[in-house]
Every structure is written in structure tokens, then in C-alpha cells.
Design a protein around this nucleic acid. Sequence first.
DNA 1: CGAAGGCTTGATAGACCTCAAACACAGTGG
DNA 2: CCACTGTGTTTGAGGTCTATCAAGCCTTCG
Lengths: 249, 249
Amino acid sequence: MPGTFSDRWPSTRAGEALLRKLKLHSSLTEEQERALQALPSATVEARPRTQPLHQGDHTGSSCLVVDGAVARYKLLPDGERQILSFHFSGDIVDLGSLHLERSDCSAVAIGQARLAYLPHEALRDVMSRHAGVALALWRETQIDAAIAREWLLNVGRRSAYAKLAHLFCELAVRMEQVGLCQTGCYRLAATQIDLADATGMTSVHVNRTLQSLRGDGLISTQGSELRIMDWNALADAGSFDPAYLNLTA
Amino acid sequence: MPGTFSDRWPSTRAGEALLRKLKLHSSLTEEQERALQALPSATVEARPRTQPLHQGDHTGSSCLVVDGAVARYKLLPDGERQILSFHFSGDIVDLGSLHLERSDCSAVAIGQARLAYLPHEALRDVMSRHAGVALALWRETQIDAAIAREWLLNVGRRSAYAKLAHLFCELAVRMEQVGLCQTGCYRLAATQIDLADATGMTSVHVNRTLQSLRGDGLISTQGSELRIMDWNALADAGSFDPAYLNLTA
DNA sequence: CGAAGGCTTGATAGACCTCAAACACAGTGG
DNA sequence: CCACTGTGTTTGAGGTCTATCAAGCCTTCG
């Protein structure tokens, strides 16, 4: 029901979301802010499971998340899927391909999402005229890369229990940054299959690990809402250190 | 023995290695090339297992590999290590931290290596004066990020056999780019422990999987030299598709 | 109400890990 | 020249974490 959805998030515009995100780590002049907000963009509603981006695509625009969530992923020939990242309001999903030939991964909407497509030409133009914007976008891509590296550690070396704990911590911090998480409580329409593909597990094992996490009083869930009951214990279980998110710039 | 080492690789300079690497995916004007070659740098010899970069470091320069190999990694509180990437001649290990407060990972020399430290100030200066250089370095960081994403898939979703096959394919292609691999044969001073930490396995299991790979006639090893005996079979086993390396720009 | 998708549970299996020891090799020093 | 040491490789024997297979259940939605 796109109608209902639009009613609930009526006013956020693409430039606004991007601006808020960039200001988390970079300071911008008023002129730069105006330039960003003036970015042309085509906003679209994306139904759950629709794919705003396909591996190998050669598009002329980048996909910005205005509302909702998007997951980037890669597929193996046998159909196995690895989710590489989650993106929320203000995140540019495929900023990396701005100066690259084609995208190396696909993306899918997790739940209903509102997306905006920013023409590469316009982005390049703003970046060339405003060095501060180019710097902010550079930082944005570097933080994205840092998150991928942390995920590599997560998937490669942590136990199932720690993997989920770490993921939930990261999502809490990142969503809190953009106002989507209050008092350790946030909504994410990810299924247990999604969580499995993000952490290199199976959905069955995610289910059982989730039960442990709940049983130990670290989290609770109802519907798509996740509530962190004991932040210290959860962060400790996942050996979560938010330094890699570069929030303090 | 730094003396012996210097004698074997006597002439490569920092700017040269970087330039050759960047030209793999970006075209540069003669002026830009000169600017790159004129970059000031302090070249040092790094003994095996020395650490040119530490997590949390706030350095004023970036580490370029001139010769040899460097691995980037992260540690878990319990000492578990995840290697995030390997770097060879022309790679800048921590380009990501050029505009970030501090490094989110550490690095270690794999075997003897020669490194050059490029002052951030000088890099920023060249980038601001030459948009083409900035673009090339942007591409460089994006390819680095794309490799990390492919590793995420490798570590999260492939079998042990496929993990090693994929890693060996990537290393062959990347080392061939810079002249370190001929006819599917290259030297890498990585131990089986290193390979384990790069793929999220244990060294014991790496050892056994290596034996399978050899037994199936896909590779052969002698000392630190790896020879790919059957490229097609190896690429197939690792479902290796070099598209993510962005070689064709 | 039926269908579809997601969640939960049980039983079984296997890929990979852990522990432990032996082996190979190079560098060191007496 | 040969023990001696350290690091890396190899092998063996369990053990376990996680995957697989299969079924039942629940909610949502047309």
C-alpha cells in the first residue's frame, strides 16, 4: 500500500536525508548545504523485496535511501546469498559505482522503502564545485568500507551468538544516528533468512541463536521490532566497539 | 638481511609503483604522472611480521607497498585474527584513512617488504591540484572496497575448498597486473595460518584443504611458490569472476 | 478459507574445529 | 660440525558447532 506508506512518511526529501547523514561526520557550509538540497532526484516507492540495483548494472545514477531499509548482497552460482550491508535513511547504496564502470553487487528493499535516484552527472558537478561535499562523500564511502571490514571480522571469526549480538549493536547505533532507534529499540523488517545471509549462518541457526539471546535477557523481539534489553551485555557478547563507524568527527 | 633484500629489488621507487597501479584503471596526463612521481616519501625496509600500521593509529601519512606484501587485519579480544586484504606493489594500504580520524585496522608485512610513507598533506595537495589523480585514487579505494565485499561473500558463503580456490585466483590476477605472477605462478610468503585468517578457517583445515587442491591437480606448491596447474578448474571451484576487480577501465 | 511466507522445533549429519604430537627446515650458537 | 631452538607443516583422533532435512505452526493477505 504505497498510499498508506506515503502518508506515514510524508515530508522527507532526498537532499534532506543525505544532508543530515553527511553532517554526522563532516561540516558543511550553508552554500554546500544548499547545493546538496538542490540536487535533482527522482523519488520512487519500492515494495518489499524489489531490487533497486542489480550486479553488473551500468547506471547513470546512484540510489539514496530516503525511508525504509535496503540490503546490498552478492549471489553465488548455487543461489547462496551474502548480504554485505544494510542501508537506512540518508545512505547512498551504490556511491562506490559513481566513478566505476558497473556495480559489483545487487540490492533489495527490506520492507517498504522510499528511494531517490541521484544522477551521477549532478553529483559530480556538485563535488567539483564544492570540495567540502566531495570530502564528505569520500568519508561516507570510507565509512561504508570500514563497515564492510568489520563485517568481515564478524562473519569470519565470531561465533553465531556473537555475530548476531554485534550486528544488532551496529544497527542500533547507526539507526540511532538518523533517529530510527530510541532507547535501544528499533524496527527492521529483516527476516531471519536476511539475518542469516548477513552473518553467514542458516536461518534455522539464527532462530535458535535468537532464542538464546532472548533467553539470556539481551534482547527481546515483537514483530519486526527489536529491543535491546541489556546494552552492555549485548555489546560485550558481540565485542562491539563503535570506533569503526567514525562517529566522532 | 636488509642488505641482501635491497640488492635484489634495487630500483623501484614509490612513485613509480603507485603510478603503474593507478594506470591500470585510470588514464593520467603526463603532468599528473610527474606530480605523482614527485611525491615525497620515506622508504623503509620492513622485516617479516613487522607492523607498519596499528588499529587506532592517527598518522599523518599513508603506507604504500613498494615491494613485497602486506596484510591488513583486525583482532578480536580473544586474539582471533581476521585478515582483511593483501597488498602488493603499488597498493596504498591505508588510503581510506586519508580523510578519516584514525585507522580501523592494523597491518603486517608478509615476508620482507619495502614500504613508502606518503604524507597526507602531499597527497591532498596533489589531489586538489589534479582532479585526475583524485579520481584515480577514488577508484583505487573503491576497488579496495569491492574486494572486501567479495571477501565477505568468500568468508561467509563458500566452502573451505572454494574459499582457498577463490583466494588463489584473486591473488594470481592481482599479482599478474603488477608483474608478480607469470603463467599462473607466484610467490607469497603467507603461512597457512595467514591463509586461515584470510578465509575464516583454522590452519589445520587449510592444510587439509590444500592437500585436496593439490590432489585434484588444481595447484601445486613448493616453498612459498604457488603454481596454478588448472586455471579453469580452480576458477570454477572458487566460482571466481574477476569483474569485481574492475580491470577493464 | 486457502495459499504463501516466515517462524519454530526435532532429529540427524557433516564440515570444520580442537587438542596433541610428530616432522621438517632454517637459523643460531657452542 | 652438530646439537638446539623456533616456526611452520603435517597427521591423527575425537568433539562440537552449525548445516541439513523435514515437519508443524502461525500470521498475513487475497
